[in-house]
Amino acid sequence: MAIGMRVDGWLPGWLKRGVLSDHLILWLSVAYVLGMAPWATGFVSVSNAQTILAYLLPVLVVSVGLTLVLIIGGIDLSVTSIIALASVLGAKVMSGEDGWMAGNALAVPVGVLVMLAVGLGLGAVNGFTVAVCRIPAFIATLTTMMFVSGFAIWVTLSRKIGGLPAGFVMLGQNLWVATVMAVAVTWLAHGFLSRTLYGRWFYAVGQNARAALVSGVPVGRVTFWTYVASGGFAGLSAILFTAGLETGNPEMARDNLLDVVGAVVIGGTSLYGGRGRVLGTVFGVLFLALVDNSLNLVGLTFYTITMVKGGVILGAALLDTARTRILARTG
């Protein structure tokens, strides 16, 4: 309460409105771009926009899936390992070097379907263990992560798979195509959550699953399909990651889990469930990508970047906390 009281007390009206806005992280992003532009050479440029987008899109897609899971009060630690397995299995189908369908005209569509199927299938496994077997989501998805990570390395013997067809690589490297795919699924998820009854069920389950059940919400089904969706988003993200790097990689996105969770939480989604928005996640992912990119452009050392990035994220989190407290106090 202390932070909220202090901020509420001395902030000018326009700034207070900004802090209280649902789009706080977006305003921060705008302010960040304006503030960094004079210092980061090339930050405001076409080629840099391409760089940021190419990096941001696959992270955005998997983050949207995780947003759904967090809103129902769950967690999915397996998303990055799902990306890794989908990456290598899809690449094994399509690779022109020693792929299972090398040279076949249907290799790309089949490979893409395999990647999506891996995501949806493993999401269904997570959904089943959480919703039906009642295993805590943390444990269920942790074990999926461990098994799937190991399987991805075993199935490839740690080797990266290259020789992917141009038709597939285009999906990640042509920014028009990648952007349309990412925006389409993000928009769908946003519309689903904010404009449909089913979307309301997600929040109800996250706020109080027992109360939701009593009110007639099919909590089990909602939980199951949320994890399926999260797996599906991870599969789509795997397509963007793999096409962008032209490589099926059993370690793909291995180190991205904290970035993804960080972006979703910075975007205003609660780790305790019941609160969050897809649009907030979009802003969170954008904000982190801008910070990462600009600090590289400024030419800071690796160690400094890590420390500054941590500080900036902490600052954003503190602002969000202040906002939440002011809102709670003012009703």
Partner: peptide
């Protein structure tokens, strides 16, 4: 010299190399 470290992440490394290109 301008430098960056990818921290073991291929995607980040690609972004960082593109950042070098942006900086000409």
């Amino acid at each position: 010299v301008v430098d960056s470290i990818a921290d073991g992440d291929s995607s980040r490394q690609l972004q960082q190399i593109r950042t070098f290109i942006t900086r000409k």
